[in-house]
Design a binder for these strands. Structure first.
Length: 520
RNA sequence: GGCGGCGUAGCCAAGAGGCAAGGCAGGGGUCUGCAAAACCCCCACUCCCCGGUUCGAAUCCGGGCGCCGCCUCCA
């Protein structure tokens, strides 16, 4: 059995059967670039990134299209408030979004169409809608006539007659029905505008996604994704326009929606000003930790995000990192020698179980929580074996083939969730590590007369060598002082029977993090 | 008012008819100069409440209570 996904269209979990076998065409609603990127945006990005990575793992060739809304009321309002061109706003916040995505290891979409660059396609579409009688011109505004489309409401369950009367009509509008929505808006002074058969103006919000998804993926593409706050009216209206335009159904085969990120019981949003900016979160926690927190909860369940949640995530990520690092240590010790001993066979079995359990969990509507349970069980098995080796009960060489397999399984699975578990691959962490090196050089210079090397590894090794001398002399006061100061700098030292081992702290104790904390 | 979702241990969170995954926190132990990490053991007779169906329900049905989202821009 293959991947099953919850389809908002049917409100059921269904087996994914793509338009073309082995290929998956996905359109995800991207950001409106008018303000800083917050964790809510990144939840959507991470959810669909995990979907994409999992589809690829399952052998699909994925085509991922994600739009950028760069023509929109809020952008215009912000530009006017700041007295700058709208481009200045969209460029600034698109860059912010891209940085956040890159930091969180979100793969860039294959195509990233901008609304502003697809005006002709939208006009073309609107023309055909007007010709077909699905849309009407009302003094320079063009509205979609929802009464013309029998299937209107099939996604959201919102039927035109039941929409709260008058709720959507603003003064100066000339809609025939309250549920009709704008596909073209006449230009107001100072707004970006384009020529059209209905006079100068700009497209309505929904039309861009119809025009761009159809252009790059075509009618009947596989998965349309986005936040569940987009179900109505945005996605309902996309369906209406697209199916009226194409005169066929369906516009998209599966509709996948992620639930919202919550802050103290309320949806995190720009308009409520209760958001945590990704840039701020990254100042306090490594990307892996944020990514873990966002991916660990099932995507259709609203999730609360706060400091405590991120602390928990940091501990969980640490556990995986330590399991991996310990395995590397044992593998390095075993070198090329290997015997497929009992420990090795046990690990091979554990790796196989983990892969099977993870795949089963992910096949079931991307059940990442359940999948993570499999990951932790594997990590525990690896730890049991490495523990035995470190305690001298098992020879490292007896673990090798199985341990290698277990390590690969752990790497493969966590990579699907987008975790790197490796400081070097984490841009933000790497930057912090460089800062650490600088502060530690000063620290080392105070502690010892000799000068350490340049890299963090060299510096830490230098300090730890000095500390070991103190320990050998049973000068524990000095040894403990050094360990404490290193911890303050963000380097945690574990004195194992085999000697000291260090790691970079992943919790909130970040040496270079500014103290401002998340916005609230 | 309409549409939809959720309520599982101190916290987070899977499970959706057959002995309640996993993470964090907590308690005890092994190891250790100490700390940390790791490992071992313990930590929900019970899943918001009340009825019902069933040999059997956290899971199905009915009725409550509480919370949230959408119906206006939103990931």
């Amino acid at each position: 059995m293959g991947l099953r996904l919850h389809n908002t269209l049917t409100k059921r979990v269904e087996e994914l059967v793509t338009r073309e076998a082995g290929k998956a065409a996905i359109y995800v609603c991207g950001p409106t670039v008018y303000d800083v990127t917050h964790l809510g945006h990144m939840r959507a990005a991470v959810v669909f990134d995990v979907l994409r990575r999992y589809l690829e793992f399952r052998g699909y060739q994925v085509m991922h299209v994600q739009n950028v809304t760069d023509v929109e009321d809020k952008i215009i309002a912000r530009a006017q408030a700041e007295g700058v061109p709208t481009d200045a706003i969209t460029v600034r916040y698109l860059e912010d979004y891209r940085q956040a995505s890159r930091a969180l290891n979100v793969m860039p979409p294959h195509v990233e169409p901008h609304a502003s660059q697809h005006i002709p396609e939208m006009i073309e579409m609107i023309k055909k809608l007007v010709e077909g009688g699905y849309a009407y011109d009302a003094e320079g505004d063009v509205y979609f006539d929802v009464s013309r489309l029998p299937q209107y409401g099939k996604l959201s369950g919102q039927l035109p007659g039941e929409l709260r009367a008058g709720a959507r009509v603003e003064p100066g509008e000339h809609k025939r029905h309250p549920a009709d929505f704008a596909v073209w808006k006449h230009a107001k002074p100072g707004e970006p505008n384009w020529d059209s058969p209905w006079g100068r103006g700009r497209p309505g919000w929904h039309i861009e996604c119809s025009a761009m998804s159809l252009k790059y993926l075509g009618m009947g593409f596989d998965i349309h994704g986005g936040g569940d706050d987009l179900i109505f009216p945005h996605h309902e209206n996309e369906i209406a326009q697209s199916e009226a335009y194409a005169a066929t159904q369906p516009f998209a085969r599966y509709w996948v929606h992620n639930a919202m990120v919550m802050v103290r019981g309320e949806k995190m949003s720009k308009s409520l000003h209760n958001y945590i900016a990704v840039a701020d979160a990254l100042g306090r926690f490594p990307a892996d930790v944020i990514r873990y927190a966002l991916a660990a909860v099932h995507y259709r369940k609203p999730m609360e995000v706060d400091e405590a949640r991120l602390q928990d995530a940091a501990k969980a990520v640490d556990r995986l990192r330590i399991a991996l690092a310990s395995a590397e240590t044992i593998l390095a010790r075993a070198g090329s020698r290997s015997t497929d001993g009992p420990a090795s066979r046990l690990l091979r079995k554990a790796a196989e179980s983990a892969r099977t359990a993870f795949t089963a969990a992910m096949d079931d509507d991307l059940n990442t929580s359940s999948g993570l349970a499999a990951v932790f069980e594997l990590a525990a098995e690896m730890n049991r074996v490495t523990d035995q080796v470190l305690k001298g009960g098992t020879d490292a060489t007896e673990t090798t083939p199985g341990l290698r397999e277990a390590r690969e399984a752990l790497r493969t699975i966590t990579a699907i969730l987008g975790l790197r578990l490796d400081s070097a691959a984490d841009e933000d962490l790497a930057r912090r590590v460089r800062d650490l090196a600088v502060s530690l050089r000063q620290e080392a210079a105070q502690l010892f007369s000799e000068q350490p090397g340049q890299t963090l590894d060299e510096i830490v090794a230098f300090i730890l060598a000095g500390r070991e001398q103190a320990r050998a002399k049973r000068d524990f006061a000095t040894a403990d002082r050094i360990r404490t100061r290193m911890a303050e700098a963000g380097i945690l030292v574990d004195d194992l029977p085999t000697g000291p081992k260090w790691r970079i702290a992943t919790d909130g104790r970040r040496p270079t993090a500014d103290a401002s904390g998340p916005r609230a």
